[in-house]
């Protein structure tokens, strides 16, 4: 029973979405199923928030490694929650001046807006910016010419990188028109549009079939491992 009901709901929701794709009259059913998922996810968010508080309070209480980060996480979470839900510092909507909480929670200049603009956004941007360094270190490792395949990869990457810069265009600008296919910028286009696209499409076809097959297995209840073991 514990597993049969989720399987039934999964199958019902999945088949409704498939039917809704082909039968216009059933389109509304698909939208209803999607709304139900959003409702469930929203309720689960409360569960997630509760879990966040519990886990980090435990870390602080146990003084486990990095507990100070947990304290900062909890403080940031609670401050944002209180400021956002309480609409702290937000002016009432001019249409309803008698209601103190009628203003928009993202009002420019409000504490919540300030937290978003001057704390959240810079922190996010910092994490994203770190990606550049990781790309460099990964490229350094990936492009080491250890064997024939690695040499081919290195050569291809070299052409692509150069072909997308002014230097690359400048380096092969002297080639005559009848050899224009060998110009770096043209080689880049050929590599990307022929070899890269062919490889990418091969992967995409495999993925599409894999998605369809896995979905079918889930809908038919053949694959139950995401619910735990296959036993009821």
């Amino acid at each position: 029973m514990k597993r049969s009901v989720p399987l039934l709901i999964t199958a019902l929701g999945g088949f409704i979405l498939i039917i809704a794709y082909f039968i216009p009259a059933a389109q509304g059913w698909g939208e209803v199923a999607a709304i139900w998922f959003d409702i469930l996810a929203s309720i689960a968010f409360i569960l997630g928030g509760g879990n966040l508080i519990k886990i980090h309070l435990k870390k602080i209480s146990d003084k486990s490694a990095g507990w100070a980060y947990s304290a900062i996480t909890l403080a940031a979470f609670l401050i944002t929650l209180i400021v956002g839900l309480g609409k702290v510092g937000i002016n009432p909507n001019p249409k309803y001046p008698e209601y103190a909480l009628s203003g928009h929670y993202r009002e420019i200049g409000s504490p919540f807006w300030w937290l978003y603009e001057y704390a959240f956004k810079p922190l996010t941007a910092t994490m994203f910016a770190m990606l550049a360094f990781y790309i460099s270190s990964a490229a350094f490792r990936a492009f080491r010419a250890k064997n024939l395949e690695a040499i081919l990869l290195l050569g291809t990457a070299f052409i692509i990188l150069l072909g997308r810069t002014f230097t690359g265009v400048y380096l092969t600008a002297w080639l005559p028109d009848w050899m224009s296919g060998l110009k770096l910028e043209n080689l880049t286009v050929v590599i990307m549009s022929v070899f890269n696209t062919a490889g990418n499409r091969g992967i995409m076809i495999g993925i599409a079939l894999g998605v369809a097959s896995t979905s079918l297995k889930v809908l038919l209840g053949v694959d139950r491992s995401y619910l735990g073991s296959g036993d009821d």
């Binding site: 995409m204 495999g206 993925i207 894999g210 097959s213 896995t214 053949v222 296959g230």
Partner: peptide, 27 residues
């Protein structure tokens, strides 16, 4: 890609799941 989706069948070795991979080959 598809290796990832084949993981379930591969790891479990169940005939049902392996059969679905064969069906995928028809695709």
């Amino acid at each position: 890609g598809e290796e990832f989706f084949a993981a379930s069948a591969y790891l479990s070795g169940e005939p049902d799941q392996l059969g679905s991979l064969k069906g995928q080959d028809i695709g």
